[in-house]
Design a protein around this nucleic acid. Sequence first.
DNA 1: CTGAAAGCGCTTACAG
DNA 2: CTGAAAGCGCTTACAG
Lengths: 341, 341
Amino acid sequence: MATIKDVARAAGVAPSTVSYVLSGSRKISEETREAVRAAIERLGYHPNAGARSLRSTRTNVIALALPLSSSRGYLPVGGRFMYGLSEAAGEHGYDVLLITGRDAGPGGAGLERVARSRLADAAVLMGVEMEDPRIDAMRELDFPVAVLGRPAEESAVAWADLDWEEAAAVSVRALYEAGHRDIHYLATVEEDIRDRRSYSVRGIDGVRRASAELGVPVPVCPSSSDPAELLRRLDALFDAEDPPTALAVQHPAAIPGILRHLAAWGIQVPRDVSLVAVGNFPEDLGGIDATRVELPVREMSVAVTRLAVELAADPAASRPTAGRELIPPRLIRGGTVAPAP
Amino acid sequence: MATIKDVARAAGVAPSTVSYVLSGSRKISEETREAVRAAIERLGYHPNAGARSLRSTRTNVIALALPLSSSRGYLPVGGRFMYGLSEAAGEHGYDVLLITGRDAGPGGAGLERVARSRLADAAVLMGVEMEDPRIDAMRELDFPVAVLGRPAEESAVAWADLDWEEAAAVSVRALYEAGHRDIHYLATVEEDIRDRRSYSVRGIDGVRRASAELGVPVPVCPSSSDPAELLRRLDALFDAEDPPTALAVQHPAAIPGILRHLAAWGIQVPRDVSLVAVGNFPEDLGGIDATRVELPVREMSVAVTRLAVELAADPAASRPTAGRELIPPRLIRGGTVAPAP
DNA sequence: CTGAAAGCGCTTACAG
DNA sequence: CTGAAAGCGCTTACAG
C-alpha cells in the first residue's frame, strides 16, 4: 500500500507538500499540485486512517448506538434509519460505526469503549429514553453526542426528533374532526413505555393534550410485542359496552394484523371503525392505504447527523445551547377514516 | 484522555510493560500485572484506536457494504442483518463500519476508500450479484472479503448464504405434495433479477430444478417494487384461462398486500389458492401464519462474520479455498397451504 | 512557495 | 521478569 512518502518521491516533493496538497491548507504552485495529484492518482494513494487520526485526533467516524431493549433483544428499528444516517454522514465526509448489544446499554460498554479509544468523533444515540443514562455517561467523557429522540431535559443535549406529541395529537384530532367521540389510542408496546422511550412518552402526552383540548376522553392502551396478546387487548376493547369507533395506532407494524383480526369478526375499516397510523415506515402497513403520519426518516437522519457532525468538528460547541430540531408531523389522508356513524 | 504513559507512570512501570499486560503476549509477574490493571481501571484507560492500528496494521473493524440498487435507492435489507452482523462481529472483538450509497457501488468508491485507507481489516458485501465487480476490485487491492450471498464463481471468494435454490425448490415441492399442479412462482422484484442478485437467480434456478424433477411446469413471474404494478400482474395471472391453484412467493413483504387484493376478488387463502413465502423476515408477513422458509438471519450473520474475521486475522488465508457456508432451508408449516381442489 | 523535523500513542524486536 | 528505543504514517508548527 502506497504511503505519503511514496507519493512524495514519485512527485519529487517533500511528504509535507503532499499533505498540504491534500488538506488545501497552504498555497501550492499549480505545477507542484498537479505533479502531486498525478502521483496520488497513479499510485492509488489514500491516507492511512490510523495515522491520520493519531496525528489529527479526528477520525471522521460517527458512532451509531442502536437502541437496545432491556427486555427484547432487537428493536425493529428498520434499516432505513441506519441507511439514512450513513448516507447523511457520507455527505459530510463521515463514516458510521455501528454499536449494538449490551454494548449500547446503560453502562454503554461499547459506546464508552468507542469514546475512550477515539474510534469515533461523536455518537448518535437511537431509541433514546426520557432520562437516558448514556447522555450523562458521554458528557462525563466529554464525548459529543446527538440524540435521535427528545429527552426530558431538552437543553442537556443536542437532539432531533419527529414531534411525536403533535403527531399523536394530529391523529386524534383527525378522528375527532370526522365526528368520532369514542377514540382510543393504541400506544407503543408496553416495554417501550416502561423504558420511557421518548417517542412512547411523547406520543401519550400528545394524546392527553388533544383529549383535554377537545374535551373528549381518549383512553390509552399499551400495545404488546406478543401478537396474540395484542389481539386479546383489541378484543377486550371491542367487547366493552362502549366500543371505540376510531383508533389511533402508534404500533404501525401491527396494523395489518389488526385489520385482519377485526375483519374476521366482521369489523371493517373504515366502515365500522376508523384508524390512523402514527409514525410508520412505508413498509409497515403492507400496502394498506391508511390515514397516517409517516416517520420522516430522511429528515430525521439528516437533522441528527448535522448536529453530530457539528459537534464532532467543534466539540467545544458541545454547550447545552446545542441544536434542537423538532420536525412537524405531516398527516397523510388515506382510506381508513370515515365519518362517525 | 489517559495514554499508555499515564498508566505506566501511575503503575510505576514502563509503557511497554503496560502494552504487554494488555496483549498478554509476555509473561508478567502477578504483582506488576495487578498494579497495571489497577492503574488502567483507575484512569479509565482504553488504548487509542488510531495509534494501535497505525502500529499493528489491524483495526478490528469490519466494513459492511450495503446493497445498492442501480435503480432503487434503498434496498429493504432490514436492520436485522446489520444488527446481526454487528452482534456477531462484537463477539469476535470487531466493530462494524457501514458503507452505503454510490460508495457501495461497482467502482466501490466507499469500499475502495475504506480498503485503501485501512479503515477496516475486511469487508462483508451484502446484496451480492452473480458476477459482482466488487469482488474483483477488492481482490486487486488484496483486501479480504466475505460475501453474504452465493456468487457464480463459488471458489473465488469466501461466502455464506441461505441455500436459495433449495428454499425455492422446497416451497414448490410442498405445494406439489399438497396436490397442486398449477403452481406459479412469484420471484423477486425485476430489478433484482436484472442485476442478477444471487438470491434472485438462485431462487429461479431452484424453481427450474424442482419443476424438472416433478415433471410439472412452474411459470416464473417477476415481482415489482411498484405495488400497483405487482397487483396488475397478479390479476393477469388469475384472469388467465388456467389460473394458479398455488403460489410460491419470493417477495415476502408484498404478501399482506397480495392477500388483501385477492380477498377483494373473493379469492381466499388457502381455500382458493395456496401460498408459500420464500425467504421472509418474521415481520414481513404482518402476522400472517404462512407456510414459509424464513431467512435465517442469525445463522447467516454468524457464518459470514466468522469468515470475515478469519480473513481479517490472517489475510494470507485469502486463497480461493476460503470457507463457504450453504445454510439449508427450513420449511415452517403454517396455515396457507391446503390440498389442491 | 517549499522542506526538515518533531511528535501523536501505540507495539515489538532488541537487550539485559 | 522488565525496560529503552525504534518506528508505524501522518500533520503542522518552525524555518527559510
